[in-house]
């Protein structure tokens, strides 16, 4: 597979401002932070959830519980991919039953990751409500799923990969689009 960087669609500043905006929107939608739990989907949803959490704390002066969700065991493609992805721990510090959960991920594409995340959450308890926050929505949904909070809508072709880079994992903050020479699913992070 050949890939080449096509465009940078977000830089560090823009990511920062976007996260602050999402933090505001979450508070607004929830009318505060009561019963709110942020849950990042491994891997890049996790630092994003932490950043949104910090944003909320700056605005409201209150810490929101932040959880980590590993959706590997709920993926619908385990028997077609190989070798198996590494399973890691799911860590949610509170009982999610009755809570408003904001699922956080970097890119929303087919919707399959979110489907898996919803199933995983349901096995952990019965939340009052689940909302979805993503940094990038690149379209091409294969399931009836939409995001409640979107950093940026980016129309893409299926030949493109949206690559979100975050300091905590990649050492830098930027979002780029790469073009490949074949149809490619957004890589599972």
């Amino acid at each position: 597979m050949v890939t080449k960087t096509k465009a940078e669609i977000m830089d560090e500043d823009r990511i920062r401002r976007t996260i602050i905006r999402i933090a505001h929107e979450v508070i607004e939608r929830n009318r505060g932070v009561k019963d709110l739990v942020l849950v990042g989907i491994r891997r890049r949803g996790v630092p994003l959830a932490e950043r949104i959490g910090r944003g909320i704390q700056e605005i409201e002066g209150e810490r929101v519980p932040i959880g980590i969700l590993d959706i590997t065991l709920y993926r619908d493609d385990l028997t077609t991919i190989g070798p198996q992805p590494m399973v890691q721990q799911t860590k949610i510090p509170v009982d999610i039953t009755g809570k408003t959960i904001v699922l956080v991920d970097d890119v929303l594409y087919t919707g399959r990751t979110v489907r898996a995340a919803l199933d995983a959450l349901m096995d952990l308890g019965r939340p009052k409500k689940i909302l979805l926050a993503v940094l990038i929505d690149r379209g091409h949904r294969e399931l009836p799923i939409r995001a409640d909070f979107v950093g940026r809508n980016v129309p893409t072709s299926k030949r493109e990969i949206v690559h979100v880079k975050l300091k905590e994992i990649d050492g830098e903050d930027r979002v780029i689009i790469e073009e490949t020479n074949r149809l490619f699913n957004q890589p599972y992070n």
Partner: peptide, 10 residues
Amino acid sequence: EGGSSSEGIS
């Protein structure tokens, strides 16, 4: 059992 592709979902 896994297949041969290493592609992911999103």
